[in-house]
C-alpha cells in the first residue's frame, strides 16, 4: 500500500446527546483507511455503529448527534468541520453513495433520466444535451439495454434490483474516488443481489474506486471484500484481510458471529450462539463493550476497555486475550 489512502478516518467519535442526558457513544475511537481499488467491508449487527460511521464520513450527522473528535480525510482533505456548502460539492461528486432502500433514495415524481441529469449538471459544467447523452451512457453501463426508454420511466415502474442499478448509475456518474455502499443488497433477492454486487465490483475496477461496503452479511463480505472491519458497540473489535478474518479470527465476537451462521456446505445440528443481546449505545459496559456477552470474560475486561493491537500484517484485535501475545 504505497499509494496514499483515499479515505482515512482517525480517532473518530460520534456521540448522541439524548434527552435523558445520557450520551450514546455510537461511534467511539474508530480508525481505518481505504486505498484506491480496494473494498473494505464494515460488518456488524444492528446498533454496532456501522451506519453512523458512514453517515459521519458524509457529514450527515444531525442533532442530537455530533462528531466530537477525530479526523476524516478524503485524499488528504479534512472533512470534519467543512461547511455544508463545501460538503454538498463533495457528496455525490467525490463520494458516491448507495443505500439499502433505493425507493426512498429516489424521488418518485421525477423520471429516472431527470434524476441522473440533475446530479450530472449539479457537479459538472455541461449542457443539458450532453448530460442527457451521459445519462444514457451511464444507464447502459449499469445494465439497462433499453436505456433511452428507461430515461423516461419513473422509479415505481422499476423493480428493486433495477432501482438499485439506477442508484449505482447516479453514484458513479461523477466518477467518485470513494463509493459508500450501505447494505446495498439487503432488500434484494439473492439472484438479484449477485447481479448488483458483481456490478459494484465491475465499477470499482473500471474507475479504480475505493469502496466502503457496509453489510451485516458475512457471506457478502467473504465474496466481495479485500479487508474487513468488524464493529461491535461503536468500536472496531477486529480488523484484517478477508483471509485473516475468515481463517484465523481472534476476537471472541468475530468467532461467535462465524459460528452462529448456518452453512450451505456443512450440516450441523446446533448453531453456535452469542448469549444475550447487543447493549444499547447509551448503556455500554464500562470495560470491554463485549464483556457482558463474552464466553472468555476476565476480571480486567469488566473494568478496562482494551486497545486495538495489530500485528505486523495488520491483523488487529481489541481483546485482552491477545495482549501478551502481541507484546
Amino acid at each position: 500500500m504505497t499509494n496514499p489512502a483515499v479515505l482515512s478516518v482517525e480517532d473518530l467519535k460520534t456521540y448522541f446527546y439524548l434527552e435523558n442526558s445520557n450520551i450514546a457513544k455510537a461511534v467511539d475511537r474508530v480508525n481505518f483507511s481505504i486505498h484506491p481499488g480496494e473494498t473494505v467491508a464494515l460488518v456488524g449487527e444492528s446498533g454496532s455503529g456501522k451506519s453512523i460511521t458512514s453517515l459521519s464520513i458524509m457529514q450527515l450527522i444531525d442533532k442530537p448527534g455530533k462528531i466530537v473528535n477525530g479526523s476524516i480525510q478524503l485524499e488528504g482533505r479534512e472533512l470534519v468541520q467543512l461547511s455544508n456548502r463545501k460538503m454538498t460539492k463533495i457528496r455525490g461528486k467525490e463520494v458516491g453513495m448507495i443505500f439499502q432502500e433505493p425507493m426512498t433514495a429516489l424521488n418518485p415524481v421525477y423520471t429516472i433520466g431527470n434524476q441522473i441529469i440533475e446530479v450530472l449538471r449539479k457537479h459538472k459544467k455541461i449542457s443539458k444535451k450532453d448530460a442527457r447523452k451521459q445519462a444514457i451512457e451511464l444507464l447502459k453501463t449499469v445494465g439497462f439495454p433499453r436505456a433511452e426508454a428507461t430515461m423516461k420511466e419513473y422509479p415505481h415502474q422499476l423493480s428493486g434490483g433495477m432501482r438499485q442499478r439506477v442508484m449505482i448509475a447516479i453514484a458513479i456518474s461523477c466518477e467518485p474516488k470513494l463509493l459508500i455502499a450501505d447494505e446495498p443488497t439487503t432488500a434484494l433477492d439473492v439472484t438479484i443481489q449477485a447481479q448488483i454486487l458483481d456490478l459494484i465490483n465491475e465499477m470499482k475496477k473500471k474507475f479504480n474506486m475505493a469502496v466502503l461496503l457496509i453489510t451485516h452479511d458475512l457471506g457478502v463480505v467473504a465474496e466481495y471484500a479485500d479487508r474487513v472491519l468488524v464493529m461491535y458497540g461503536g468500536q472496531i473489535v477486529e480488523q484484517g484481510t478477508k483471509r485473516q478474518l475468515f481463517k484465523s479470527a481472534k476476537h471472541p465476537y468475530t468467532n461467535g458471529l462465524l459460528e452462529s451462521l448456518p452453512s450451505l456446505d456443512q450440516s450441523s445440528d446446533r448453531l453456535g450462539t452469542i448469549k444475550g443481546t447487543v447493549p444499547a449505545a447509551d448503556n455500554f459496559p464500562e470495560g470491554c463493550r463485549f464483556s457482558t456477552r463474552c464466553p472468555h470474560v476476565m476480571e480486567k475486561c469488566i473494568k478496562t476497555n482494551p486497545d486495538i493491537l495489530s500485528d505486523d500484517s495488520g491483523h488487529g484485535v481489541r481483546c485482552f486475550l491477545y495482549e501478551e501475545e502481541e507484546k
Partner: peptide, 24 residues
Amino acid sequence: ALLSSVPITDIDHKREKIILKGDL
C-alpha cells in the same frame, strides 16, 4: 442458480456462479 448465488463464507472454495438474467 439460486444456490450458486448465495454468498458463502468459505473463501477457499470459490464456486462458479450462475448469474440469472433479468428480474422475476
